[in-house]
Design a protein around this nucleic acid. Sequence first.
DNA 1: TCAACTCTCACTTTTGAACGGT
DNA 2: AACCGTTCAAAAGTGAGAGTTG
Length: 376
Amino acid sequence: MEVEQCISQLQLNASMPLLSQPAAQAYLQGSVKVTLENADLWKSFHDIGTEMIITKHGRRMFPHCSIALTGLQPLTDYVIMVDMIPVDGFKYKWKKEKWEVAGTAEPQPPWRTYTHPDSPAPGRHWMKHPLSFLKMKLTNNTLDQHGHIILHSMHRYYPRFHVIQTDSSHTVRWGSFQTFSFPETVFTAVTAYQNPKITKLKIDHNPFAKGFREGGTHYHSKRMLPAVVQVTSRPQFVSQTRTWFGPLRCLSLLGLERAPSASHSVWTAKRQHPLKGSHCSALEQDSSDQHAEPLELQEYDFSCEEQRVPAYAAYQPNRSADFDGFPLPSGDRDQTQPAYPPPLHPSSSLKQNPNGYQNHSMQDWSQYPLFSYSSW
DNA sequence: TCAACTCTCACTTTTGAACGGT
DNA sequence: AACCGTTCAAAAGTGAGAGTTG
């Protein structure tokens, strides 16, 4: 199936309602822009073929997601969220120094969304400093109880950032939301590094990996330690600047979920009720939940658009076949075209707006549920 | 048989409590 | 009493080898 056909089909089938424009525009008062903070590092990894370790207990990303926001309304509250989107419908394997397609993707694990712990906060707060999602963790444990993002190993994903306007910190009523993604943040989820170039690059940049270095050579575990090596005394730490996050505030979340027996194109809406009192909890969409309530859509005014934000002006975000280290299947593509929307790559349906960003219609992405999980 | 996954290791970095000085 | 900076211990996080699983 051609990309355009796929999109058309998705648009036809997407049940995500688009609200009337006047209602939505009431919340669209700014021109939100998102910049990837550590874009140089991301690009270094992307050039090789980024791999992210996922473990049963959850592993942080490296490079981690960090973005800068501008164009928000200073006094309006926003919630910032991240989720992970499959790049395509394939499973990969590392063979002969490169990634190869190893079949169709496994069924989507429980969908989760990571909410930035400062959320909700006014626009001026978000624009003051770049936002870090350092503490977000990735896991392959579908039974994970810690709120980590669940991914399949040997599958490719990219992070999607959501900027969601809310009415207030306490009685959340979702306003408009905008979605952003960056081509260079595509990665392959793995349980162990496959490409040694990635390992080297990570050790060079990640301070935690320094524990495995000594004198410019690597040593790993006591099995490889020279007999004379002794543990040195604990270093004295200089005083550190710390960021203090105030008490977490609670949100209510609105989600969409796929009907359990339905094909990719059929979705039902599920409303998450506002949390009472001071409780904070993580909310998860269970795809097996048969008791989803019908959503009263008129209570929620929101609009959305996704923007692909190339961090480099000269960078070519819309590549597919020439992704270094990430060969997309070519010959069998038509037969195995996934039921996912086209990834960040390229599509003639993408629009170029005056800012140079590429906007996606909400319908392109509407099959992916938002707010399925909130992790604090 | 083999690829993918999990456990474990030794080390560094981060975090937060405790303490002392102003 | 409140604030600030320093010290310390514990927890968290790291990549890779070895063992396990399918």
